[in-house]
Design a protein around this nucleic acid. Structure first.
Lengths: 221, 221
DNA sequence: GCGCATATAGTCTATTTGGACTGTTAGAGT
DNA sequence: ACTCTAACAGTCCAAATAGACTATATGCGC
């Protein structure tokens, strides 16, 4: 029994999909998964059903009744209500108007970049740049293909946006790596800003500091 | 009784703080709040205590015993263990190396920009740009002041990074607004890519479509 | 024609989160 | 000296999430 999850990254995505055509949750999931890769929000079954239920409770979407095809488990098909359409517009508008501070794992990590030491930091950043460059190139290609095949540009602007940011990140990383290598970015030793080297971690050392920096392949999870 | 929240935006932040000096949760909270404004992660009491407990259970941090100053409620002071230091390095390294797709509310909204109609979209984007520009200018100033007052650049790179991205976003928004105004960005009518105007929302209309786009001041929450 | 892998659809529950609630104490105002 | 407020420090619980689990139905290989 959900209550009101009406502020949630999935909400605009669900409403947006229903704007195109009525659908049942499982189908939305599949559709969103397919479009994903930069699209919105981490996707999860439980969450989706939850959100849809909340949306239905709030009257933003309405069940159009059960269907059963072939004879799979019953699927409840939902459609956008006028209220829902209004709310979608309201939410989109609001989310666009107010820039919110967004936090990324990368931003969180960069904050403590110092702990890696100049060598370790440069190395890790360089690897990120490499991977990012590959991914970005692939995304660019996909975008170009989509446009070439007649998809209207409006329907892929989110990809354009993501690409812009990715390029900016790349440029930034390259610049920082350069500054580390040339010494333009100084590396104050030890923990805080205080010069006193109170503890752990020999003042800097070459590449990786103490503990081996993981298998550096997969994410840590 | 927490289990293992060891992958969590707060984790690097907490470990990073303890790298500077031992501290108790409430203090970390205050410190993180102060540094916030672009720093890492949404901050919340419950979550923080939870994370610290998990960290302690895992042996990444260790309680240094109770203290009571003046005579406030007891505060348990935690310090980073060698294991914790190693894990911090490992996590930072991993988060930097692997670029992950990050989802922002803005990205999610832009995906369905079409629903606002060209007028509504241009207007909303313009307002965002304005606010973003203000905020960015303020951030730039703060950054400059910090550097001028002797804070080592390494300790404010996350601000540099955030600024780079903000500037890129601004440039993108400006370009898109332009393309909308000049008509370079075409606006296919109706729901999906299908030309058929099946339903709600008169094909475009001026500024805001149906329902009034909120009090457009505060976030919707 | 029979079993097995996979796709379909959904439910259920253990972690996590956010934020309300509790209680203390130092300091400001009167 | 006495009350009142704001800062301090934490606990606790309802709401939300992620993802494991259930169950049927195709369709493929053998």
């Amino acid at each position: 029994m959900p209550r009101r999850t009406l502020d949630n990254p999935l909400v605009p995505a669900v409403l947006g999909l229903l704007l195109e055509q009525p659908s049942h949750p499982y189908q939305m999931l599949a559709e969103l998964r397919k479009r994903s890769d930069n699209n919105a929000a981490a996707l999860n079954r439980g969450s989706l059903y939850n959100v849809v239920a909340a949306l239905a409770e709030a009257g933003w979407v309405a069940a159009q009744g059960q269907q059963r095809a072939g004879n799979r488990p019953e699927r409840t098909v939902y459609a956008l209500t006028p209220t829902g359409h209004g709310e979608l517009v309201r939410q989109l508008d609001s989310r666009i108007r107010n820039p919110e501070r967004e936090f990324s794992r990368f931003l969180g990590a960069v904050t403590y970049l110092g702990a890696l030491g100049p060598g370790g930091a440069a190395e890790a950043l360089t690897e990120r740049a490499g991977r990012l460059r590959e991914r970005t190139a692939a995304d660019e290609e996909r975008l170009a293909e989509a446009l070439a095949s007649g998809v209207p540009r409006l329907h892929v602007i989110e990809a354009e946006y993501a690409l812009s940011l990715a390029r900016a990140e790349l440029a930034w990383i390259d610049a920082i790596v350069d500054d580390i290598r040339t010494g333009a970015l100084e590396w104050p030793a030890g923990p805080a800003g205080s010069g006193a080297g109170s503890g752990a971690g020999s003042s800097d050392s070459g590449p990786a500091a103490s503990a081996a920096p993981a298998e550096s392949g997969q994410p840590e999870r």
